[in-house]
Write a protein that binds this DNA or RNA. Structure first.
Length: 690
RNA sequence: GCUCCCGUAGCUCAGUGGAUAGAGCACCUGCCUCCUAAGCAGGGGGCCGCAGGUUCAAGUCCUGCCGGGGGCACCA
């Protein structure tokens, strides 16, 4: 029996009772968890609504309490319900049979995260999640990490909810940002491709290629502005960017070859960074293929056929293909229509994105070619798109690895920061206009607010702030100005802090093990820090908060799980087996001794941990439906908190009363299981010890 | 001008229309002979920005206003 099954049964009973007793059809039966365990396990405020509707229908004024009293015996008859109380002005509070519930709950093997059989997953509609999508021209910063952690966690949550998911990381390898770094290499450094390769090889491990590009990109930004950071861009110098960009888009020339090396190396560096955080991808679709495999041409034809866009004969956008956008009223300054094809015939990013999105949904009629990009040590492969026609058979083995069939999803989730919500809306509408049968619902913009820097963080980084900046709540990061916290720097710092802590706690263990534990803690801290904020909250990054291992943090949650595991390392096998037997039997034969453990104030406290642990499924489902990983993070923290309290109050192994020990052991067992599953869905691992 | 988001404890943030609004940090007081103190317990702290409205019930929904941030490029 799962918690939600019992809830559903009770809901149904309320619904049918309302129909039979009062002739009222309830569309939705609201159920809630009472504020305190003593008040019950599930509450129905339904009597208030029924009182109003009875009055509407018959004119009879019936107090909610009396309605609740009438429903009480019907709910009490439900299997698994111990008793029902009417409380307050008319709440119906249901109390479960605690011993029986624990017995059934603990016997479930894998309540959450069981993704069914492989064939079952195969036929399910595919959810496409695009995240990370960092311009491959510099190292990742914490803003990018928020994107990647949000996306990766959402993927894990969907999978825990039994969904089939494909993960994409879009590579804009032919864009302006790559062009800028290429301008830097060619015109500032005067380097050839071979010289760049030699430089790359010579760079120290702690300051790799993406770090070099980070600095170079900043220098290019200054170069465009004649070395004045606040100056206007120099039109002559910007011509270099335009020429370079054009050559890169064109392809098949030395500049494009150089750009390809730069972009590919940055992608590799970024994937290394993400691997440190446990983040991987199924496929890396590149913009160069969208161009060279003529994805845009196909999308363009469809958009013209469906009259989604039209050619502007006159006005401000004369000579462009535009998509009307009536929800934004135009002004002199801001045009209402969105330009898709420029007057020079080139396509905008939005246009390319519509083509890409159509491919994601299987509505373009074209596919990429693919080749393996990276094989991970554990056998996973990340694929990248390719222009060349590598053998395409989906069942074909390449290096003993089968290539999955990419694209053709039922729903697309784009993890992109909220600053691009306007563009995302254009894409969503464009796609829906071309493919009305999938509609706008198939495209979901999983938006989130940016990560900015707190004033304290800027000071720590030695960033000069103007008087005006200091009065603001935060300072926006800027890749162009080089203002930001690089992901690897932060992870290094977290690992170093965690390592020194592990060293003082466990001087006896091997260096390798200490490093591994420190790594797990660092990742736990960073991921949790980025997940505890809801998506539409701006994170003003602060070192003190991000580097904390205490309080509401990842390590706090990990620590609770480690403690739970340590109980079972030390508990002898016999005690574990006898506990299991005793609790299992209580499912059918009422055991007074076991039931007694759940009585009184102490019993409520133990029971509240059981019900909280049992709500993991609900938390996972809620996070998946609301596309809000923060709710699962909060749930996990609360479960860890409840377990720490439980752990502190009870001597589990030393407990002498057999029934009581059986309950405590079982509660610890179900909690550690649920906690581990919750952490796994957050991408946080549980070390052996901490 | 139009549009989206935010405003809740000193600070940073949670809070599906339901009961006495929560957590972490900071501050104060206790608790390591114990399954590890990255922990636990207790304490002070709140016109939920303001004003109306809807509802049996509003921090939550609607309208207006005030304050802060983002977006509205032939950039991505």
């Amino acid at each position: 029996m799962r918690l939600q099954d019992l809830q559903e049964t009770l809901r149904e009973r309320v619904r049918s009772a309302a129909a039979e007793n009062f002739n009222i059809t309830l569309k939705q039966v609201t159920a809630e968890v009472p504020p305190r365990t003593e008040m019950g396990d599930l509450a129905f405020p339904v009597a208030f609504e029924l009182a109003r509707r009875i009055k509407q229908a018959t004119g009879e004024k019936r107090p909610p309490r009396s309605i609740a009293e009438a429903l009480k015996p019907l709910l009490e008859a439900v299997e698994g319900v111990a008793r029902v109380e009417v409380a307050g002005a008319g709440y119906i509070n249901v109390f479960y049979d605690r011993a029986q519930f624990l017995s059934r709950f603990s016997s479930l093997v894998a309540p959450a995260g069981s993704s069914g059989t492989l064939s079952d997953v195969d036929v399910k509609p595919k959810r496409m999640v695009e995240h990370t999508s960092i311009n491959p021209n510099k190292a990742a910063h914490i803003g990018h990490v928020r994107n990647a952690v949000l996306g990766d966690t959402f993927v894990r949550i969907l999978r825990a909810a039994g969904e089939r998911v494909e993960v994409q990381n879009y590579i804009d390898n032919t864009g302006v940002q790559v062009a800028d770094v290429v301008v830097g290499f060619i015109h500032l450094e005067g380097m050839t491709l071979d010289e760049i390769k030699a430089l790359d090889k010579s760079l120290p491990k702690e300051r790799p290629f993406d770090y070099y590009c980070w600095d170079l990109y900043t220098r290019v930004g200054l170069f465009y502005r004649n070395d004045d950071p606040n100056g206007e861009p120099d039109a002559e110098r910007l011509k270099l960017r335009a020429e370079t960009l054009h050559a890169i888009e064109e392809g098949d020339n030395p500049t494009a070859e150089l750009a390809d090396y730069v972009a590919t190396r940055n992608v590799e560096c970024i994937l290394d960074t993400m691997e440190r955080l446990g983040i991987r991808y199924d496929v890396l679709p590149r913009e160069s293929e969208i161009l060279h495999l003529h994805f845009w041409d196909a999308a363009f034809e469809r958009m013209k056929e469906r009259s989604v866009i039209h050619f502007a004969e006159e006005g401000k956008n004369k000579g462009c293909w535009v998509m009307p956008f009536e929800s934004h009223t135009g002004t002199d300054e801001h045009e209402a229509d969105k330009i898709i094809v420029r007057s020079n015939g080139t396509v905008t990013y939005t246009g390319k994105d519509i083509a890409y999105q159509l491919w994601k949904l299987g509505r373009l009629g074209l596919d990429f070619n693919y080749k393996p990009f990276r094989h991970y040590f554990d056998g996973q492969t990340t694929w990248i798109t390719s222009t060349e026609h590598v053998r395409q058979d989906t069942t074909e083995l390449i290096g003993a690895r089968t290539r999955p069939r990419f694209g053709g999803g039922a729903t697309v989730y784009n993890v992109i920061d909220s600053r691009q919500s306007y563009t995302q809306e254009v894409v969503r509408r464009g796609v829906a206009a071309v493919a009305p049968d999938v509609g706008e619902e198939a495209s979901v913009h999983l938006g989130y607010e940016m990560v900015a820097l707190s004033i304290a963080a800027c000071e720590e980084l030695g960033i000069e702030l103007s008087e005006e900046d200091r009065t603001r709540p935060f300072v926006e990061m800027s890749g162009r100005k080089g203002i930001g916290v690089k992901a690897d720097d932060l992870i290094n710092r977290l690992e170093a802090d965690a390592l020194s802590e592990v060293e003082t706690r466990h001087p006896d263990i091997s260096v390798d093990e200490r490093v591994a534990i420190a790594h797990a803690i660092a990742v736990g801290a960073l991921r949790y820090f980025l997940l505890k904020f809801t998506r539409n909250s701006v994170i003003a990054f602060d070192f003190k908060e991000a580097l904390s291992f205490e309080g509401e943090t990842g390590p706090y949650c990990q620590y609770a799980a480690v403690r739970a595991n340590s109980i079972f390392r030390k508990l002898d096998a016999g005690a574990q087996v006898s506990a299991k037997e005793m609790i299992q039997k209580a499912q059918h034969d009422r055991n007074e001794e076991v039931s007694k453990v759940f009585e009184g104030e102490g019993g409520d406290e133990i029971w509240s941990l059981v019900t909280l642990a049992a709500r993991l499924d609900e938390a996972v489902r809620g996070a998946a439906e609301g596309a809000e990983p923060a709710t699962l993070a909060k749930y996990t923290f609360n479960l860890a908190r409840a377990f720490n309290l439980f752990y502190h109050r009870h001597r589990i192994i030393a407990e002498e009363n057999a029934a009581r020990r059986a309950v405590l052991v079982t509660v610890a067992e179900v909690t550690r299981r649920q906690l581990a599953l919750a952490l796994e869905a957050l991408g946080i691992t549980v070390p052996e010890r901490m």
